[in-house]
Write a protein that binds this DNA or RNA. Sequence first.
DNA 1: GGCCAGGTGATGG
DNA 2: CCATCACATGGC
Length: 294
Amino acid sequence: MVDIGLKPVEPYSFVATTRRLVRSEKALYRVRDGQFLRVLRIQGRPIPVEIGWESGQVRVQTTVELGTREREILARLIRRMFSLDVDLGPFYEHMKKESPLAPIIEERKGLHFVLDPSLYECLIKTVISQQLNLSFAGRLVYRLVELAGETIRYGDEELPVFPTPEQVARLDYEDLQKLQFNRRKAEYVIDLSRQVADGELDLEGLQSLSDRQVVEKLVALRGVGRWTAECLLLFGMGRPDLLPAADIGVRNAVKKAFELDGQPTEAEVREWGEGWTPWRSYVTFYLWDYLTEG
DNA sequence: GGCCAGGTGATGG
DNA sequence: CCATCACATGGC
């Protein structure tokens, strides 16, 4: 039995931060009266975890017995995933005179990233999402999880576990084509998983590199372009200053916020974004939220 | 029915 | 080097 309270750096809004999970992460997060339920791997062992908010803290619970070391790892993972140590004060200060973004940002005070628990999971989900509308992409992720991952029982629920690289590496391209992946995407997902499983691709080793070095390493992989590399830096690593300027969502959000007639080009978005340094990831994230949540 | 989705690599000039 | 294209499917 584990019950941990984790205090975030203020300002922090749990409701705003987890809203995205309800909408587009249904494959892996179950919602039960304001609480989130998902399986996290702690030292390779799948642990079902309940995550909620109580009196100013993130409350993490599981009925599974954990040792001291495992509890520490779990606490650290949750702190990283929910960005509990990120101080957004300087971001709000930096953006408060940026018209017309300031009010959009102000409305979302306390909204933080929710990072994926592993870079592998982030990479696979991002590759699957390439060029697809979010709802179809989410369905493909869920089908992959169902096909390749295991499930574990927690109370009266059967919970999906995101597959390991080894589990996906064992699939054939045709298995994913049957799930309505296009041929090339099936190849990307399986080939990348095989490289991770074989130890050719050390994703966690990227953590020590600069943004530029990470992009350089990742775009060398088949199926990974600049957009995917930047998303990994954003949603896998929580790096604060990435601007996926070619991204259709960012461009549509800029169009909406600045009331432009047409979609801005990648170069135009980059030019505007220069003033947002060193917080461009958070601007991106707030723009996506603005676009999807109004 | 056509066009676009939180792109990418293959192809052909 | 740059423009164009296919890719699976769903939503509008």
